[in-house]
């Protein structure tokens, strides 16, 4: 029996086979969507580049070259594929090292905001009543502020720096996930399989954790993936305003901010990081769309 047959078996013989088979089927469906595969490719490339930044980057991202001869070199200059900036630093190397910061922002925001959103949303949806009212009004309050402004306020309170920027973005981005999780929970809460679990004497915690969260998970993951572009842009915005990554860290938003003084004459300094943000945001969006097609049961058929 080939691995493929083993995975697609309608009669799995073990827990592991059932789970792997399920994953393989999802992958097969995902693979059929070439745009989603492009998105996945971009995101994977981002991860690989971040991991191998030291090897891939031709120059040090922080220390520049000769300020007399190597400042603001245009793209395709010998030795500097994407040119150099005003401190004679190689833009390509800075972009490559910048992937680490971007990835860190994305990963930490996802790791902080998703659980908060899931927890608040499922709890509110499952218990209803005053628990729901309190939690959702709290969510509404956070949601009522423009996200960038709120993030700026947090950064201002916590002090500038990339870590604080991440925390600020995470704190401001969970409400949509809470709402989504609550809406999903409301439709699941009264279903027969939850009633059946209650009839086995399961505690509320167990029902939420083992039965409701796994069902909300996929739509929240889709939403988070689609939001990644926005998160990257917010991080860039915070960086652009000088409240995120501090010089000389090669953060893409900060790089655009640094390049805006030369935008008319030395366009590449701001454009290159702009393009990088564009490509990565697009990648996450395509990936999110593809995930929605395979994971969201409502979108199917």
């Amino acid at each position: 029996m080939s691995t493929r047959e083993w995975l697609l078996s309608e009669q799995p013989a073990s827990r592991r086979q059932a789970r792997l088979g399920q994953g393989y089927r999802t992958w097969l469906a995902f693979r059929g969507n070439w745009l989603a595969m492009v998105g996945l490719g971009i995101v994977l490339a981002l991860i690989v580049i971040a991991a191998l930044a030291d090897v891939l980057a031709p120059y040090n991202p922080v220390t520049g070259g000769d300020l007399n001869t190597q400042r603001l070199l245009p793209p395709l200059s010998p030795g500097h594929l994407l040119g150099t900036d005003d401190l004679a630093r190689d833009i390509l190397s800075r972009l490559i090292h910048g992937t680490r910061l971007t990835l860190m922002v994305v990963a930490l925001v996802a790791l902080i905001a998703t659980p908060i959103g899931l927890l608040v949303g499922t709890t509110a949806g499952y218990f209803g009543g005053w628990v729901d009212t309190v939690l959702m009004r709290l969510t509404d309050i956070v949601l009522a502020f423009p996200r960038l402004i709120l993030a700026l306020a947090f950064v201002a309170a916590l002090g500038p720096g990339i870590e604080n920027a991440i925390i600020a973005i995470a704190i401001t981005s969970w409400p949509p996930y809470a709402r989504l999780a609550r809406a999903e929970t409301l439709t699941i809460r009264n279903s027969d399989f939850i009633a059946a679990t209650r009839l086995q004497g399961a505690s509320s915690l167990r029902i939420i954790w083992k039965h409701i969260v796994p069902l909300c998970m996929s739509s929240v993951i889709i939403r988070v993936t689609l939001d990644m572009a926005g998160i990257i842009l917010t991080a860039a915005g915070v960086g652009f305003l000088g409240l995120g990554a501090q010089p000389p860290q090669p953060e893409w938003g900060a790089m655009i901010a640094g390049g805006r003084r030369f935008l008319l004459d030395q366009w590449w300094v701001a454009t290159m990081p702009g393009l990088a943000i564009f490509v990565v945001s697009l990648g996450f969006n395509l990936l999110g769309d593809g995930l929605r097609d395979v994971l969201d049961p409502k979108g199917r058929k």
């Binding site: 059932a18 279903s191 027969d192 399989f193 059946a196 009839l199 039965h211 069902l215 049961p297």
Partner: peptide, 24 residues
């Protein structure tokens, strides 16, 4: 114990038969 009307709604869509039965 109770058996519900709609067998399409009374089983958790992401749980195998094994986990449905081991949960209780």
């Amino acid at each position: 114990q109770m058996v519900f009307q709609d067998p399409y709604a009374s089983l958790h869509p992401r749980h195998t038969v094994d986990s449905v039965l081991s949960e209780p």
